[in-house]
Design a protein around this nucleic acid. Sequence first.
DNA 1: TACCCATTCTTGAAAGTTAAACTATGTGAG
DNA 2: CTCACATAGTTTAACTTTCAAGAATGGGTA
Lengths: 174, 174
Amino acid sequence: MNTASTGSDAGTGGEPRWLGDEEQCVWRSYLHATRLLEDHLDRQLQRDAGMPHIYYGLLVLLSQAPRRRMRMTQLAKDAKITRSRLSHAIARLEQHGWVRREECDSDKRGQNAFLTDLGYEVLERSAPGHVAAVRQAIFDRLTPDQVKQLGEITRVMAEGLQPEGTGADLPWRR
Amino acid sequence: MNTASTGSDAGTGGEPRWLGDEEQCVWRSYLHATRLLEDHLDRQLQRDAGMPHIYYGLLVLLSQAPRRRMRMTQLAKDAKITRSRLSHAIARLEQHGWVRREECDSDKRGQNAFLTDLGYEVLERSAPGHVAAVRQAIFDRLTPDQVKQLGEITRVMAEGLQPEGTGADLPWRR
DNA sequence: TACCCATTCTTGAAAGTTAAACTATGTGAG
DNA sequence: CTCACATAGTTTAACTTTCAAGAATGGGTA
């Protein structure tokens, strides 16, 4: 089924409002760009740092955290991934010696993941190449205004997709 | 390593040009938005159509093709995925009876994938919900101008990431 | 024809992801 | 205190993706 068409009936609720020609075109561009970029960065990092993009992002988050350590749940939230996925990811990063776990003092259920020196080195070594790749794909190709627009657009999108409410965590909403 | 920092040395080539504060912020928003949206659509489609977003996209492409069929390589190119990935994907879609393969007349190496009636029905049934999800995440939240900007921005990005040259295929470049 | 190399598509194994179930600890009400 | 329920994190199995290798056909050149 086309995402467009002047189609008729209802799906779940009422009349489905199909996408117009221009919207369709934008949607396709979005899909292509995001898919190509993610693939590109995944390959670049797999080659240069030996890990997929998302794992690299975890190391970055840890490197920026107070004592280079963070609670699992918080890390999962910041990285926008599920706890399950994080568990698997940290397990692997741990195998490489880039990250380690430690019990959490205040909460016996908790675990902290922390970046090892070895992990920091890997990050240090691969950061320049990664930034270059990001720059080449985005910041070097867009005008300053477009960059600003992209920031605002994605901010709005993310806001709308956050689990619940803008607090993205707090038990407000509903 | 931070994607920013006023860091010093070189990576592979010359001085790495780190991202400025604003660029960093945009990049983070981009990652969050795209990750959240992809996850959201994957869950929505897995629930309503029984397949991940990318598989759904394959059915959409097939549904729009001439006789609802397409050469594997062309399909892979249009969907921006590798042939290997496509092979596995089609294999699974075939198991569900949504797609089938047939030999290609003109080239004995070739295969056509075609959308079955059953596949078309699934698409027809799940399209409204999918469009609604896309609309809710993007088109209902952005201003018409932002939508236009997003289209242009992603077009530029995709262009820069295409395998080689804009032809995205032709043996020109280099 | 014989040969070489490109193209098409598939395959198998390893790595990564998901959803659901599960363990263990925290927390509040009664 | 005790029960019920929420939270934190892990685990299992099924599924998806990737990478590298492989089988078969096409095409060009000597």
